[in-house]
Amino acid sequence: MNPLTLRRLSDAAAFAAGPLCIIGGLLHPIEEGHAHSPEALLQPHTLGSAALLAGTVLLLFALPGVYGWVAPRAGKLGLAGFVLYFLGNLLSAVPHLVLMTFAASDLAEHHPGMVSEQDAVIAAPAFETEQIVAGIGLVLGLLVFSIGVVRAQGLPRWVGWTGIAGAVAVFVPLPVLPVVTGLQIELLRGVMLAGLGLLAIRSARSATTAAAPAPALV
C-alpha cells in the first residue's frame, strides 16, 4: 500500500474516532448514580457501547499514523504519551467495551452477582485490577501526549490543551448522571482526536499538492 494512502486512512480514522466516542459516551447507561451496576447494564446500551468500541478500534488504527506525523515535533513526551495512551486503550478500553457490547446485558440479567462493583463489568479481582491500572495509564497517556502536542512547533495549541483538559476532567468529582458523565469523559478527548485527524488530513493534502509534478509546457 502507498504510504500516503495509509496515512490518509489513519488521519480519517482519527477524525471519525472522536465523534463515535462522544456518541457512545452520551448513550452510556446510568442508573441511580451507577454506570455499571446490574440495573444500569439492563438498560438499552448496545448502540452506545458499540459506538465507543468502534471509536476505540479506529483510534488504535489511527494513533501510529497520527503520531508519526506529530513525532518530529512532539519530542520524548509525545513518545511516552503515545505509548501509554495506546496501551491504555488496548488493555483497558477494548476488553471493557467488548464485554459491554456483547456480554453485559446477559450477565446483568442472568448473573447479576458477577457484575463488578468497581466499574469493570466482571467481578474478577485480577481483571478489576488490570482495568484500574490500564485505565490510569490511559488517562496519564492522554495527558502526557497532549502536553507533547502543546509543545510541538507548528501545531495549534488548542488541540493539546483540549486533550489536557479532557484528562484532568476525568478526575473532577461530578455526580454520575446520564449524558453529563459521558460528556465529562468523552467530549474533550473526542474533540482533540477529531482536531488532530482534521489537521493531519489537511497536512497530507498540502503535501500531496506540493509534491504534484508541474504540468508540461507544450
Results as ranks from 00 to 15, higher is better:
206 S>Q: 15
181 T>S: 10
15 F>Y: 02
78 G>K: 07
176 V>Q: 09
132 I>V: 14
167 A>Y: 04
153 Q>Y: 04
46 T>F: 09
139 V>F: 09
211 A>T: 12
95 P>H: 09
204 A>Q: 14
30 I>N: 03
182 G>W: 01
39 E>I: 00
139 V>L: 11
179 V>W: 08
110 H>I: 07
88 G>M: 05
190 G>I: 10
53 L>H: 05
10 S>H: 13
50 A>Q: 07
202 R>G: 12
43 Q>R: 11
71 A>S: 13
45 H>F: 02
206 S>A: 15
138 L>Q: 11
148 G>H: 03
65 G>M: 07
33 G>L: 07
92 S>I: 03
83 V>W: 11
148 G>W: 06
189 R>L: 13
151 R>C: 02
12 A>V: 11
201 I>P: 02
156 P>C: 08
44 P>Y: 02
55 G>C: 01
162 T>L: 10
139 V>Y: 06
164 I>M: 11
10 S>F: 02
85 Y>G: 07
52 L>D: 09
184 Q>K: 13
75 G>D: 04
101 T>N: 01
54 A>K: 00
4 L>N: 15
125 P>W: 12
188 L>M: 12
178 P>E: 04
60 L>M: 14
104 A>R: 06
138 L>S: 00
133 V>K: 05
36 H>V: 10
80 A>S: 13
83 V>L: 15
209 T>P: 02
110 H>Q: 13
196 L>V: 07
115 V>W: 00
170 V>H: 14
35 A>D: 10
207 A>F: 10
104 A>Q: 05
91 L>K: 08
59 L>R: 02
73 R>H: 09
193 L>R: 03
122 I>M: 13
152 A>V: 03
104 A>M: 05
30 I>P: 00
207 A>I: 10
207 A>V: 06
120 A>E: 03
174 L>C: 06
62 A>N: 02
162 T>M: 06
54 A>D: 01
208 T>N: 12
172 V>T: 11
